[in-house]
Amino acid sequence: MTLFLIVTLNGLTLAALYFLAASGFSLIFGLMRTVNMAHGALLMLGGYVGYSIVDATGSWGLGVVGGGLAAALAGAIVQAGVLGWMQGDELRQTLASIAISIIMADLMLWHWGGLTYQVELPEALAGGQRLPVLGVGYANIRLALMAFALATGLALWFLIQRTRFGAVIRAGVDDQDMLRALGYPINRIFVLVFALGGMLAGMAGVVAASALSIAPGTDLQFLLSSLVVVIVGGMGSIGGAALGALLVGLAEQYGLAYAPTYGVVFTFAIMVLVLAVRPQGLLGKAEL
């Protein structure tokens, strides 16, 4: 029973991390129909930059913000420099973002080497708690991670549903030409969306490097989780990303605990099951 509780808690932690990673991916896809295959690389860039900042300054908060900003800048450059020129040609954008992700991963390998890094935690997050009622110990950083994911989800929802920027973006999804005709600088808006998606990925990268660790291959791991999360949850839906992350995170941890050499099969099975029953994802709208 204790094992089950611990595994469940670990699953929730992982789900929070997957949600943070997938939310930026899902945001960009939902608003711009762009499959940003460089999303994992942006996340890894954030993680590495965050590590270097924390290493140099000793401030964890600065590391999270710095990692987020670095990935935001990189995301903006990717959209403004390459993908923006192919807007509307989704296949080309996908292929180009793959090329960018290969280049980014290789350059990061060059600079940071093949080592595994873990970001040092501030004292407040370093310890652990004995959870009331459940009676199991749990690291503070993991609790903080869940709180962070929750806050991010709410902030995103607020941004998209309740602000003027969100309204403009939502209108742009439905009718880009209309927005353009109304004089909105749609290209600049798309660059901003990419920066926002990159920011989310970068911060997730620093958090991932703190709660777990970061090394070459982290990009692929989170690209896969983001893909599966949005396929399961529904493309472009923040609520769907949360639900998908929850399912995938829990499945992965239960799989690892109870069937270690077949763990990934659980994740895969969830994806196949959802595609069979509801191809547009659990909370997604039907493809047109």
Binding site: V35, M37, T94, V228, I231, T261, Y262, M271, L275, E287
Partner: peptide
């Protein structure tokens, strides 16, 4: 049921999941 970028996402997820599966399974 998927075409275009959706098919890319699904087949990529399948390919990468198989990669992790071969690493896990002895």
């Amino acid at each position: 049921r998927s075409r275009g970028i959706y098919a890319i996402m699904i087949t990529l997820a399948i390919g990468v999941a198989f990669f992790y599966f071969t690493r896990q399974n002895y």
